[in-house]
């Protein structure tokens, strides 16, 4: 119990340190790498929460492919961030403090962490856990929920990914035209 809490605290503090480091660093390459570490730490947190599927996705997508895509972007844009113009820092600070205070105030309304009678445990989750062995009979009922009970949502997600691919190709996928000497850029 104590060890578990220590791991939680360690991972959360680590996340906070990485976020501050990302904000303060001007070198974009380092920032991207830190984002990768951030995702990996989040994946560990999801594993601590027993959400293996979410942790897996976070590790593969967050730490893996998005890091690579951001690196590819940096190879086009250059790795140094433009120096900040020194303007008034009081207004942004006030906005951040007020937003943060609102969020902390909102946390107080959340049900206590891990209580068995929280809404999240009493709504549809019991039905999935009790009925999915009879109705769908796959051992990993996260898959049953995603692919069958929420099949329509997952279809939407696949369409989103497809649309993202189409969008990127329409915007910057024009390599062949360049060779013909036509410049549309």
């Amino acid at each position: 119990m104590i060890l578990e809490q220590l791991i939680d605290i360690f991972l959360l503090v680590f996340l906070a340190i990485i976020s501050i480091a990302v904000l303060r660093i001007r070198d974009l390459f380092t920032a991207v790498m830190l984002f990768g570490i951030y995702s990996l730490t989040s994946a560990s947190l999801f594993m601590v929460l027993d959400a293996a599927d979410v942790g897996f996705t976070e590790a593969a997508v967050g730490a893996g492919i998005s890091t690579i895509l951001m690196l590819a972007t940096i190879s086009m844009t250059g790795r140094e961030e433009k120096p900040l113009k020194k303007k008034g820092t009081m207004l942004p600070l006030a906005v951040v403090v007020i937003t943060g205070a609102t969020l902390v105030y909102g946390i107080m309304d959340l049900p206590p962490f891990g209580e068995p009678d929280n809404p999240v445990h009493t709504h549809v989750a019991p039905r999935y856990i009790e009925q999915s062995p009879q109705e769908i009979d796959v051992p990993n009922f996260v898959t049953a929920v995603l692919a069958s009970y929420r099949g329509y949502d997952t279809l939407g997600e696949v369409v989103v990914i497809f649309t993202a691919g189409v969008g990127v190709m329409l915007l910057i996928g024009r390599r062949r035209k360049r060779k013909e000497g036509i410049s549309n850029e």
Partner: peptide
Amino acid sequence: GIILVEFGVGLTVASVMMLLFFTF
């Protein structure tokens, strides 16, 4: 249904990720 649907998801995600990377 689940196997077919997951197969579709895998095909789209893999090829879109490759297309994105190749384009970039």
